[in-house]
Amino acid sequence: MKFGVVVFPGSNCDHDAYYAVRRVIGEDARFVWHTERDLESYDVIILPGGFSYGDYLRAGAIARFSPILESVIAHAKKGKPVIGICNGFQVLCECGLLPGALIRNRSLKFSCKWVNLRYEATGSIFTERYYVNEIVSMPIAHGEGNYFADNETLAMLEDTGRIVWRYCAPDGTSEWSSSDAEIPAYNPNGSLNNIAGIRNEFGNVLGMMPHPERACESVTGGMDGLRIFESVING
């Protein structure tokens, strides 16, 4: 299986995603420069974390207009797998492959730490190796990861089981009350409904703020992210 890791000017988790796929798992992976248009030979596209085009204007807002994005959209429309991690999730929302938006963290500060996530919904090609309600741990590292969508979209995501990852307490508790202004301590950025990752209708596109590529080896803190890549290989 061949992975394409898209490199925008300013991507900085491109090497980490490449390393996870190529060195940790041993699959074929190539960097794909943002000016390229031909993705025919790739099976899976990774939009990595970082600050594409400096994230000037708004995170992911300029990347959405890059030449390669048309091809990424076409790739996704064919039902082929696309995962956006962190800045990649922001790009997926900006280009309309996923609904909603990622706004500044409630704290107005960048936040880098390990968080607990609850696996909620099946149906994503990237998560078949997790079991429902499993609690996993992965790092986040973002300043704009506060998931926002209108009520209608949120209800649609909930009703159609498209919320894949939710921030949770170590015991798996993940409570959200729309009337409550108090954000639970385990929600690191203020995301509505504690949303950490969502999928598209067909399950071939996944966007998530936590970094699975940073959670692939025990020496660097944990391996819970590895199955994201393994799922899509075996899927």
């Binding site: 900085n12 988790c13 090497h15 980490d16 390393y19 996870a20 974390g49 500060k109 960048f110 936040s111 880098c112 730490k113 790092p139 590292a141 970094h211 590529e213 940073r214 692939c216 080896e217 020496v219 660097t220 803190g221």
Partner: peptide, 23 residues
């Protein structure tokens, strides 16, 4: 926590030890 201390997946935890360790 305001610094990305893990990018490049080289930093070996714990992150608040006596010295930082990078593989």
């Amino acid at each position: 926590e305001q610094y990305d201390h893990m990018v490049r997946t080289g930093t070996i935890p714990p992150y608040d030890g006596d010295a930082a360790v990078v593989r």
